[in-house]
Computed example of a mutant assay.
Amino acid sequence: MSGKLANPAPLGLISFGMTTVLLNIHNAGFFPVSSMILAMGLCYGGLAQVFVGVMEFRKGNTFGLTAFMSYGLFWWSLVLLMIFPALGVADATPPAFMGCYLVLWGIFTAFMYFGTLKANKVLQFIFGSLAVLFFLLAARDFTGSALIGKLAGFEGIICGASAMYLAMAEVLNEQYGRTVLPVGEPKAEALTNSHPQQA
């Protein structure tokens, strides 16, 4: 039996990416929030990333553990923020307080971005654009600006799509044993499947 462990990062990346794209299609103003977004947030964006975080722990990847567990549980918390008021469990969160929530996630993501600087360029873009997304969404809630919210939606679609790209690149590049989809690997050191496996 081989001792090699599979790379769990593509699962975490694709679940994060697809769920982020769907939520931000809503933020961009195309569709209202629906049960589809809530279900994706709980199951794929949330549960799948938590599973991946556990697998990254098994691999000894602190960055991957922290990123996937955090963003998986972010999705759960976001969905609960939406459904608790509808269930009568708690009052709806005031927009300014929601802005504080998003600012904290933006700060966390900005710190995590610095953990990607020795990794590939696509991973850096994902974390950099995700930090921007959180701050734009916070600005929307602080100001009530629909324009900022729409801008955040389009930016979030790009962020989610970049995570989907990296997921498929890692799967296909490993499957074929060569670079099928480039990700901008660092030139100084070969980090194949050993770079921080995020988000």
Rank of each mutant, 00 (worst) to 15 (best):
N7H: 05
N7L: 04
N7T: 04
A9H: 06
L11R: 06
L13F: 09
L13P: 08
I14T: 04
S15R: 03
F16W: 02
G17I: 02
G17K: 01
M18Q: 10
M18W: 11
T19G: 02
T20A: 10
T20W: 05
V21E: 00
L22S: 08
L22F: 13
L23W: 14
N24I: 04
N24Q: 10
I25T: 07
N27V: 00
N27K: 02
A28Q: 05
A28D: 02
G29F: 01
G29H: 00
F31Y: 14
P32Y: 08
P32A: 07
P32D: 06
S35P: 11
I37F: 02
A39P: 07
A39R: 05
M40G: 00
G41Q: 03
C43P: 08
C43D: 09
Y44D: 09
G45Y: 00
L47F: 14
L47I: 11
L47P: 11
A48T: 12
Q49M: 03
V50L: 03
F51Q: 12
F51H: 06
F51T: 14
V54N: 02
V54W: 05
M55W: 15
E56A: 07
F57P: 10
R58C: 11
R58Q: 14
K59N: 13
K59Y: 02
K59Q: 12
G60M: 04
G60D: 01
N61I: 10
N61S: 14
N61P: 01
T62G: 11
T62Q: 13
F63R: 12
G64K: 01
L65I: 12
A67P: 05
F68Y: 11
M69S: 15
Y71V: 12
G72D: 03
F74T: 08
F74R: 09
W75G: 04
W76V: 12
L80R: 06
L80M: 15
L80S: 07
L81A: 14
M82S: 13
I83R: 00
F84C: 04
F84P: 00
P85F: 00
P85Y: 00
A86W: 08
L87S: 10
V89C: 08
V89Y: 07
D91E: 14
T93Q: 04
T93L: 09
P95K: 01
P95D: 10
M98H: 13
M98P: 01
G99S: 05
C100N: 13
Y101C: 12
L102K: 05
L102P: 02
L104K: 08
L104C: 14
T109L: 09
A110Q: 06
F111R: 11
F111K: 09
M112T: 06
M112R: 05
Y113F: 15
T116W: 06
L117E: 13
K118M: 09
K118P: 02
A119N: 12
